[in-house]
Design a protein around this nucleic acid. Structure first.
Lengths: 229, 229
DNA sequence: CCGAGTTCGTGAATGTGTGCACAAGCGCGT
DNA sequence: ACGCGCTTGTGCACACATTCACGAACTCGG
């Protein structure tokens, strides 16, 4: 177990590894090897990309055979740091916060909800996803006692920056932000953002392109809907 | 003004335009011009990037002055196809589906919820976000009568492909998928995916890197604030 | 009307990601 | 033991994205 290449893994690859991992984890137990092409099909990507991605972890495949599923799963998990759980704390117990706390996929994939906090007295004390909602004042204590390093911002936009400041102040170093706001944080804190409206706007852009090019100028909506079987 | 360059807009730019638009829309009314640097600061990106992004829309800035906010908003909206609303239909009225239907940000930004469907008889008839939950059998009718072109998959993973097939069958050409599943759809259908667990795993990867390297290498000086998207 | 200060638009350099194509390695059948 | 078919790992070329750096165009004060 000595030499790990410790190569720098490209960000694009890091973003695909979790998908590979999910697919591999869901495979039938009786399938013990998988080829880059099979995995590529399941992931909806190119086989060469799969091979290149996996090559950053080391040479864990066997030519003529493929990758041993169990071993590959282990290696990907190790590389992603999933050898232990990463507890998360959710700030905001509104619709989204509750949905997140209830989402089994979190704990299943190694991210148990260590706590959920809110400012609204009406919400405090209620239980969502098996966790009791606490007052935001307890955030810092909670983070430290449960060794939480990932925070999830699920507040209204106006409160998002405050939530981020609280999280950072409590020692959090990674934030997943669902509020439509640009968070300003120290440089050593990672932030990822999920903005549902932005996703829709990107789709809307492509929709528009589609209809634009079928007609000539008039920005009509309906008429030519491609009834793809 | 007649000529629209009709240049091809890079995908990376398309993904940033909605963020610029949101920021511009939230600016004080008394600010009538904004420079690329100001906008860049607010968006947490490089000023040159802002200028290049905006240049794909045409030359709408004025040297020495900046961009006229109102005009720029109009141009970005036009480019993104936001001159009219894009109704969406949500498949799955579970925790996430309900949170999405309740999310005001959708309708505010031009994506009214035209319908929400489920298979569970217990959920049908209830009202979320002002919309009545209907049976999934009504999906096709709903899509056609309300001219919906964007579908949102918020089902459990096992039902996601079925949901996608239904949407495609009904004539939907864009899908936003929240289920941790790779959807297979005809080539002319756009799919974007939001996987919450994957986002956390990416953060976890960087967390791990952080703790790994802090053992050997002294991290950077500061704690100055940076805006991160 | 001119010069100083500002800011855009963009060419060019650099950095990052993708995909082809093929040599090298492995297993299996004979 | 050997050759054949399969699959990996990766060099290379190309495509895409980011950032720098600078000329061009504008405002404003005197």
């Amino acid at each position: 177990m000595s030499d790990r290449p410790r190569r720098r893994i490209p960000e694009a690859t890091v973003e695909r590894l979790p998908e590979y991992l999910r697919i591999l984890s869901e495979l039938d137990d009786d399938l013990d090897h998988i080829s880059s092409e099979q995995l590529a099909d399941l992931a909806g990507v190119n086989a060469a990309k799969v091979r290149k991605d996996l090559s950053y972890l080391g040479s864990y495949g066997t030519r003529g055979v493929g990758y041993e599923v169990a071993y590959l799963v282990f290696q990907v998990r190790r590389e992603l740091g999933l050898t232990h759980d990463w507890p998360v704390i959710i700030v905001g117990a509104g619709n989204l916060g509750q949905a997140l706390a209830n989402y089994a996929g979190f704990v299943d994939r190694g991210f148990p909800v260590a706590g959920i906090v809110d400012v609204d007295p009406a919400k405090i004390g209620s239980v969502v996803g098996g966790v009791r909602v606490r007052h935001v004042d307890e955030l810092s204590t909670l983070v430290r006692s449960r060794k939480v390093s990932i925070g999830v911002v699920a507040t209204p936009p106006g409160a998002a920056q405050d939530a981020a400041d609280l999280l950072v102040g409590a020692g959090i170093t990674s934030i997943l932000n669902f509020a439509p706001t640009v968070l300003s944080v120290p440089r050593d804190v990672s932030v990822r953002k999920v903005d549902l409206a932005i996703e829709l706007q990107i789709l809307g852009f492509h929709e528009q392109r589609r209809s634009d090019s079928s007609l000539s100028i008039v920005p009509d909506v309906d008429s030519s809907r491609t009834a793809s079987a």
